[in-house]
Design a binder for these strands. Structure first.
Lengths: 186, 186
DNA sequence: GTCTATACAGAGATAGAC
DNA sequence: GTCTATCTCTGTATAGAC
């Protein structure tokens, strides 16, 4: 019974993790098959056994994103502090699996990858819907763009540069944003 | 007298315009020397006469960005509707020279280009300073992130996809953001 | 100043051994 | 399932003609 359960091959996940990390740290261009394989500890041929081509690897990453985003939306709906406050807090880069896959996917979206853009749009719309229930459609947009701005800045810094210092600066900013959200709620 | 004035060669600017346009429309990876040369109507060799290598082309683009950003900061300070409202309005994609060079540079920043990131940080700080004078340091951050979010979304769409429809949707969003700014001001 | 031709490296992908 | 070897294409850059 137990061994009939579909089990995810660990090598496959390791490759996907490596791809994600390289996208975050060095950008789309440097996330080559060679680099991903090396980081995952396999050969290029080994990598291409799991993912027949690069596009397949991207698709799997987007699947991962959608799965994690769905969990996030549920948590947002159930958040005791309210959806808006939850949204702002979770827009801060915290190196969570969702944060990571989001920033990684953003690197692909910049590169005119249509499928990635579509997925983003879908998730953003869900966020907006939940926010609108709490603060109304108008203020939901303000909150949404604040969160997007936070993400934009996390993305611009990526894994390079003074992540520690800048991250704590943005962390302080969250306080200001939460105060702003509080004002908008009334 | 007139002909002793340093005059910018037009071919050089045409190359830079082409590079910028390709970054916006098809992303960093597709903005190759071949593609830029073709779009500018010169050969690759001709291009490389003006810019000895690709990095030189990037540097010139960043110079352009800093120059236009400086003008924008001045306009923001002098804006009759206030710096915050001016900032939100001008964060909307309007295909201005500053908008264009900004989105183009963002494509480079995603690719872990350190110099580009530094320039961005400098400009953002200037914006924040001006905003803080008007609405205080806390609310300035809220306004700033809203503007960044607007830019983030413009960038995600780039020149591809339904720019017309989505752009007008974001245009409507600006109304909501201005209302939010008005609330935050009080 | 702008062109063509070419060198050179890196990237994605295939073939086939183990 | 994972490896090495290799093919092909594309991108940056140089050399030198015009």
């Amino acid at each position: 019974m137990m061994d009939t359960m579909p089990r995810k091959p660990i090598a496959r996940d390791a490759v996907l993790d490596a791809f994600e990390a390289l996208l975050i740290e060095v950008g789309e261009r440097a996330a080559t098959l060679d680099a991903v394989a090396k980081r995952a500890g396999v050969s290029k041929g080994g990598l291409l056994y799991h993912f027949p081509n690069k596009e397949a690897m991207i698709s799997s990453l987007l699947e991962r994103m959608d799965g994690l985003a769905a969990l996030d939306i549920e948590a947002m709906k159930a958040a005791p502090e309210g959806a808006a406050a939850f949204f702002i807090k979770s827009s801060l880069w915290a190196d969570t699996p969702l944060d990571r896959v989001f920033v990684a996917a953003t690197r692909l979206a910049e590169v005119a990858h249509e499928e990635t853009r579509r997925r983003f749009a879908g998730i953003q719309q869900q966020w907006l819907d939940v926010l609108a229930e709490e603060v109304g459609p108008e203020m939901a947009k303000a909150v949404r763009y604040m969160g997007d701005g936070l993400y934009f800045n996390a993305m611009l810094e990526g894994g390079a540069g003074d992540t520690e210092a800048k991250a704590s600066a943005r962390s302080a900013d969250v306080g200001a944003l939460l105060a702003a959200v509080e004002r908008l709620r009334n």
